[in-house]
Design a protein around this nucleic acid. Structure first.
Length: 291
DNA sequence: AGCCAGGCACCGC
DNA sequence: GCGGTGCATGGC
């Protein structure tokens, strides 16, 4: 990977296993806007980034080397060896091999734990376009203004303290529906340190999950998403309808319980289960497998 | 127009 | 413990 400055920011060259469209559209994150093919604006960690890819050339606009190193390198997992991960996963079985070949440029983003928690509480029973809009609503109402992109005012995702200002009714007015009390409960438990988000990464996945599901509206699936996307726990296998469909379709035939699928994933993919899940999820959803 | 969405809590057995 | 049902809202 070769990094150099240009008049508008940073250019990265020679980076393999990276496709910005796949990374952002694969369902792991919600705060991004598509400007054009392979040209996006991302909002994360209180920053706005325009990122554009031309084959193996990636442009990070309005970015210093410092910002690139401190924020975007960890965020995009640029220090992770995806060649090795893909190599290992490809040999597991033919279905996963196909998914990895098809979605070759996915990387698991390392996102903010709190934002991931609220985002995936919102995600239940919703389409991605609507999830994105609700998160935007929360940010506009309770986050800080940080600039414009495409003529649109951009706000940070609200901190626990900021979001705590919202009553259940305020949240309902922002159209989160039955999730309003869940968000209130998450704010309370996090602010009181009944659940210490900063401490969760030092726990095992099982221990951290026990903590997370104490929050109302956080069940097994949402907790697994927080562990994977917001806490860098790669041994989990978030199993939503799409993952369930593809697993049943290819591996179980007659249908399977979530628990069976989790056991299978643990056995088959082990410490790489989270990566496997992402390739399978995006592959299944994009090709409408099992539906 | 009705069905369903990256699920979950709550209720009956 | 387990299976069924309601849930706010909007897009297809």
């Amino acid at each position: 990977m070769n990094i150099k400055s240009f008049e508008q920011g940073i250019i990265v060259e020679g980076l393999k296993h990276f496709d910005i469209g796949q990374i952002l559209e694969c369902g792991q994150c919600f705060r991004f806007y598509k400007n054009d093919e392979q040209d996006y604006t991302v909002v994360a960690f209180k920053k706005i980034l325009r990122i554009k890819q031309e084959n193996e050339k990636i442009f990070f606009y309005h970015t210093s080397k410092k910002l690139f190193k401190e924020i975007w390198t960890p965020y995009f997992g640029l220090g992770t060896d995806y060649g090795e991960i893909k190599e290992k996963l490809s040999h597991k079985d033919e279905v996963l091999n196909e998914a990895v070949l098809n979605k070759w440029g996915i990387r698991l983003l390392v996102q903010d734990t709190w934002e991931t928690l609220i985002s995936f509480i919102i995600s239940q029973n919703k389409h991605i376009t609507h999830i994105k809009r609700l998160i935007e609503n929360l940010s506009e109402a309770y986050g800080d203004y940080i600039g414009e992109a495409m003529g649109k005012k951009i706000y940070t995702f609200p901190s626990p303290k900021q979001l705590s200002r919202a009553s259940e009714q305020d949240l309902r007015n922002l159209k989160v529906g039955f999730r309003a009390p869940y968000i209130v409960d998450a704010c309370e438990k996090v602010r009181s340190k009944e659940i210490d988000l900063d401490n969760l990464s030092s726990l095992t996945s099982i221990q951290a999950k026990e903590q997370l599901i104490k929050i109302k509206g956080v069940g097994s699936k949402v907790a697994d998403c927080v562990l994977l996307y917001g806490l860098s726990k790669y041994d989990v296998f978030p199993t939503d309808v799409w993952v369930k469909r593809i697993m049943e379709y290819y591996y179980f035939k007659d249908g399977a319980r979530i628990e069976e699928i989790h056991n299978f994933a643990k056995e088959q993919y082990g410490a790489l289960a989270g990566y496997a899940q992402q390739y399978l999820f995006y592959y299944a959803r994009d090709n409408k497998i099992g539906k």
